[in-house]
Design a protein around this nucleic acid. Structure first.
Lengths: 174, 174
DNA sequence: GCGTTTGTTCAAACTTTTTTGAACAAACGA
DNA sequence: TCGTTTGTTCAAAAAAGTTTGAACAAACGC
């Protein structure tokens, strides 16, 4: 595994893109960033290009600037909209739709927590109550006590995790 | 992409393992858990088996209980030790080494932050200062102002991220 | 209606990550 | 010393995840 420990040894992305210096650097920074969050590369690229663009961009701009397929651009933008990290620009007379990035941390963190973190905590809760039930049914008293202690511990972790989230959002809200 | 939004439609792992009910449930919970953190499945399985075992286990126990290879078990335990999530049990007369899980949240979160989060923040900082420099060199004043605003924003995010971490550890410390 | 532009979908191709297993090293007792 | 047990390493196989591209749908103006 390479996923654990150690600062990974930087690798520049060599794609057929038309990004110049600063743009490329910023895009790479976001590629790294989303990687940490477990999101695919193209998500970081797309957000990066929007973030570094003084004007909103359309799908075809992303295709051209990043050298990715239209399909990738479409899917990437959809995911970013789902995270609340990108929104459509309203009310220009144009036919095509332009996108701009959300740039305040509160919104970004909030979207990530809502879409990526909460669902896991929710589904975890269900599993934990099943677990508690299973532990109660262990016949051997010594094993039962042990299992119940473990389950209680997991439950406690989840509870604390749930408490931390709103706090996090409050601290990061500007 | 499936990585974004939506509670994923549960799938039971069907391996040639010798885990019974409760054990299997707990292991699956940890598999999900580490997946969210971007760590490989076997890491979650191994931690899970240790967590649910009343006694410390040796590598061969993991191989047998999980139906994974010895190589996998060895690498997984190494990674978990690196995260501070598993430690060797000292001072039994035995030849083989036994492992037990760390079960307090403070240590687990601390290890994860130290190994997985901090290195990225550190390497990010370097890149951001290069970025600031590049922005200063943009000749066009309007573009320069825009780029500098963006870079400042990223810098601010990083700074806040760095501040949140110790706070997080404090809140989760028992 | 018809041609054009814009965006979406999804199976197949591709890429990356994870796991395996066979070869190796270390520790130990006989 | 030798055989056995225990653990590590790493190239290759397998699995998982991502991107592509061609086919399709929708919106629009003429």
């Amino acid at each position: 595994m390479d996923c654990c420990m150690a600062t990974s040894p930087e690798q520049e992305s060599e794609t057929s893109s038309s990004l110049e210096g600063l743009e490329r650097q910023i895009v790479d920074l976001f590629v790294d960033g989303v990687r940490v969050l477990g999101l695919p590369r193209s998500i970081g690229e797309i957000y990066g290009v929007l973030f570094v663009s003084p004007t909103p961009l359309a799908l075809d701009d992303l295709v051209e600037k990043l050298g990715i397929s239209k399909g990738s651009a479409s899917q990437g933008v959809r995911a970013l909209k789902g995270l609340g990290a990108v929104r459509e620009v309203e009310g220009n007379g144009e036919r095509r739709t332009y996108f701009e990035p959300a740039v305040d941390l509160k919104r970004l963190v909030g979207g990530f927590i809502r879409e990526q973190v909460r669902p896991h905590i929710e589904s975890g809760k269900k599993k934990i109550s099943k677990l508690a039930e299973a532990a109660r049914e262990e016949p051997d008293p010594e094993r039962r006590a042990f299992f119940q202690e473990r389950v209680a511990r997991i439950d406690n972790w989840t509870r604390r995790g749930g408490q931390v989230l709103p706090l996090l959002q409050r601290i990061l809200g500007e």
